[in-house]
Amino acid sequence: MLYVDLTVQGLVQGSMYALVAVGLTLVYGLLRVLHVAHAGLYTLGAYIGVLVTNATGSLALAFVVAIVVVGLAGMAIYRLLYEPILDQPPYVPLIASIGLFIALQELFRLVFGPYGLTFDQPPISGSLVLGPLRLQWVQVATLGAAAVCLGGLAVLAARTRVGVAWRATVNDRQMAESFGIRTIRVRYLNFFIGSALAAVAGVLVAMLNNFVEPTMGAVPSYKMLAIIVLGGLGSVPGTLIAALALGVLESFGTIYIGDLLDRDAIAFLFLIAMLMVRPRGLLGKV
C-alpha cells in the first residue's frame, strides 16, 4: 500500500501546486509575462489565513479576507508594475517581478518576524480513514478545494460571458477588442482570479504545515515556473496535469533517488529534460 499512499500524498501536494501554478499560467497566457511575484501573493494569503483565524477564530472569514486582499493585491501589481512596462523587452517585467518578489519576502520577514507564525488552534484536525488509507482532513480539504476552484474556473471559462470574453482576449486581443470586449477588465479579472487561487493555496498550506514563514514562497516561486513550462506555457489544462504529475513524481522520487538529488531539484531535472526534448511542454501551443 506504500504506492497508493505515496500517490495520494503526491496528489495532495500536486493539487496545491496546481492552485498556485494556474494563476501563473493565466498571467502568462494573457500578457506573456512570467509573474514570479505571484509566489509572494501565495505567502501573503498564508499569513492572512493564520492572522485572521487567530484574531477571529473563524477559518471561513480567513479564507474570504485572504481571497479579497490577495486578489486586490494582484490587480494592483498588474496596474502599477506590469501595465506600464508591457512594451519593454520581456526580461524587463521578468526581472521587475523577481525584484518585487524578493522585496515582498523581505517585508514579510521584517514585519512578521523571521521565525514564522502558527495557528493558535489548528482549525481542522483529525484524519479520515478509508480502508488502508489514512488521510488528514486537511489533506482532504486541499483536494476538495482544488477540485472546486479549478472546476469552477473551467465552468467560468466555458459557460459564462465573462469566460468567453477572457478566452477571446487570450486568443487574439485585437480581435477581441474589435468585438467590444474590454480587455483591460479581462486583465484585472485574470489577475484577481489567479491571485485568489494562490491565496486559497496559501491558507491550505498554512493549515497543512501549521506554520507560515517569510521564505515559504521561495521554493514555489521557481517550482511553479518549472511546472508551467512543463505543462506548456499558457495552457491551463497542461499546467494542471504537470502540477499533479510533479506532485506524484516528487513523492516517489524522494524515496528512490533521494540519495542523488534534493527533492526540490527534481522539478528542475524534468524541466531541463523537457526543454531539451519538447520545449513546447505537454500541451503548449507556443
Binding site: 526580461y91 538529488l261 531539484a265 524541466l271 526543454l275
Partner: peptide, 17 residues
C-alpha cells in the same frame, strides 16, 4: 523566457546535486 527559467533551473540543480 524559457532560457531564463532554464538557467534558474541550472542553479537549483547545482544546489540539489
Amino acid at each position: 523566457d524559457f532560457l531564463a527559467i532554464a538557467t534558474m533551473g541550472v542553479n537549483f540543480l547545482f544546489l540539489g546535486v
